[in-house]
Amino acid sequence: MKADPADQRRLLDLAEVDAELARLAHRRRSLPEDAEHAQAETAVRSAKDKLVEVETSAGDLDRDIRRLERDVEAVRARTVRDQQLLAGAGIGAKQASDLQHELETLARRQGVLEDEQLEVMEQREAVGIDLDHARGDLARAEQTLADVGARRDSALADIAAAEAGRERARAEVVAQMGAADLLAAYEARRSQGKVGAGLLRERRCGACRLELDRTFIGQLRAAAADDVVPCEECGAILVRTAESGL
């Protein structure tokens, strides 16, 4: 293949732009904010799970408290009724004895219920503190997630802007290329994830950085300026300039 030496030199500009685009793509794939965001999402899920757990405990204790309040109120109401019956006229000795015994039983029952109620209320108070902590932890985790998300979005926007600039620069270089075959050969290598072209300098290929043997260098010296010569090591198009030392 033959191509104008000027077009061959333009491949170096194209390769430089493509290298920058590759670096930007790598940066996009390996953003530290991505890992931070994943960690922050995990922290939010964990905080939500913990909050649900504590809320469930609080709800269970609240139901226990309401049940105990109803039980205590029922005992008190029964006590008032028995006291009224005991104080009433026309009550027999046996009935009075039975009522007195029931009042004693109700008093003991009320004491047990009130002790249990106090214990449960103390537990609920402790869980209330845990609930406040869990809500605070969730709020902080969600704020961290939002902050990391904002930083990630900003980093991605910077990368996108840089990529857009490099794509414009690439389009300008391609528009200046007159050798379609040369460009096609370069793009074919690039589509394979390989460096398409490299500057020959001090017997080294700018694409693979390997030193070329003397025989091949001799062939390069003998080649015409418009000959398109691939690197014998990596296959990239070797671009010869005044820096090549031929």
Rank of each mutant, 00 (worst) to 15 (best):
G149S: 12
V52G: 08
R63L: 12
E202M: 15
S57P: 02
R10H: 09
L145G: 05
A169F: 01
L156S: 02
A96D: 01
E16Q: 13
L138D: 02
A93D: 13
H37K: 14
E104D: 08
R201H: 15
E102V: 13
A35G: 10
R67C: 03
D227P: 10
D18K: 14
A146S: 06
S57V: 12
L61D: 12
A188L: 09
G165F: 08
V52D: 09
C234E: 10
E233C: 09
A47G: 04
R45Q: 12
E114K: 01
A146Q: 03
R63E: 01
S46V: 06
E202I: 11
A224D: 05
Q117S: 08
L113K: 01
A225E: 05
L24P: 04
A107D: 14
R23E: 04
E114A: 09
A157F: 03
L212N: 06
A179Q: 03
A77C: 07
M121T: 03
E119N: 13
L210W: 14
C208H: 08
D137I: 06
L24A: 12
D153H: 03
D62R: 15
V72M: 05
T105G: 11
D181V: 05
E202D: 06
R214C: 07
L212I: 13
R124F: 04
A141M: 02
S46H: 11
V17L: 14
L31R: 15
L85A: 13
D64R: 15
A6V: 15
R81T: 10
D62W: 12
D4L: 09
R78Q: 12
M121V: 03
A47H: 02
L182F: 00
D226P: 01
A139D: 12
E119P: 01
K2I: 15
L61Q: 12
Q84K: 11
L12V: 07
L183S: 08
R209W: 13
E119V: 12
E125S: 11
V80G: 07
E36T: 03
E142L: 06
A89I: 01
D115S: 04
Y186L: 07
D115R: 04
E20T: 14
D34L: 11
R204W: 06
D64W: 10
K94P: 03
I65F: 05
Q83E: 05
L14C: 11
V44Y: 11
R168S: 01
R23H: 06
H26E: 14
R23I: 03
R190M: 04
R140I: 08
A87C: 03
P5D: 07
K194A: 10
R152W: 07
S191A: 11
L51T: 00
Q100G: 06
A225I: 10
L131M: 01
T56S: 07
L85N: 09
A134P: 02
L99H: 04
C208V: 07
D34G: 08
A22L: 11
K50L: 13
D82Y: 00
A126W: 13
E41W: 04
E163D: 04
D62Q: 15
A126N: 01
L106C: 03
L212H: 05
C231L: 08
